[in-house]
Write a protein that binds this DNA or RNA. Sequence first.
DNA 1: GCTTAATATTGATGCTTGTCAATATAGACG
DNA 2: CGTCTATATTGACAAGCATCAATATTAAGC
Lengths: 121, 121
Amino acid sequence: MPRTKTTLIDPDVQLLQALAHPTRLAILRELTDTNEVCACDFTSCCDVSQPTVSHHLKILKEAGVIAAERRGTWIYYRIVPAAAERLRALAGELLGAPQVIPASALMAARPSRDARTPARA
Amino acid sequence: MPRTKTTLIDPDVQLLQALAHPTRLAILRELTDTNEVCACDFTSCCDVSQPTVSHHLKILKEAGVIAAERRGTWIYYRIVPAAAERLRALAGELLGAPQVIPASALMAARPSRDARTPARA
DNA sequence: GCTTAATATTGATGCTTGTCAATATAGACG
DNA sequence: CGTCTATATTGACAAGCATCAATATTAAGC
């Protein structure tokens, strides 16, 4: 499967992908510090050109991580608080599995799933 | 900057990138449900070939998200609990910015950063 | 040691992404 | 309305990534 456009459909993947880039992480860290940042300021902090900053801001905005507000000539960006909750929820859902291991899983010493399909001939 | 290999150096980015893929997310969800899964089981759940599963498992392992344990012929994977903490910490650090907005930032109606460098001629 | 089964690695290929230069759009202000 | 400044969009290109087929490795069991 050539991995169509599923990526853009799953909002969890979209959120994670939006965060999974050094420049965008730098943008977010800048926003964390300053709470509100004019778009023109990211060019200096991130060492990329203006169109690139604009591109990354768009990705973050489309993923619901940041929000934009125009004030005069400038556009200010800030972090959307709900994004933090989504990330925390993901951490809980995915990685916060209960630490109790059912004994059956340990004793089996064999895949406990089904009739052990040969996986692939 | 051609985005050298910074990606692989920043562990935060590495963690996020490891999670930011539909197949790998599916693998993790499977692990969340079953707690421990034999590698051969992912082929059926994720609709990709065996080498691809192996590849994704490697990425997750290198990012510290999962751990492998060999038991006889099979290799079992489980989630590393610390990964959840790292993700939660990231959520707090990045997106859990204090909600109080300093009045100065609102009144300025101009970037409050420095002498408003022209950003780029 | 040979065979069999599970997992990993290699190599090749197409898709996606990040980047910038050039250009377009939008608002401010005279 | 025309000019100036900030931001967005387009287009092109390079680099990275996901995928699979083929092959290698590793362990089990005879």
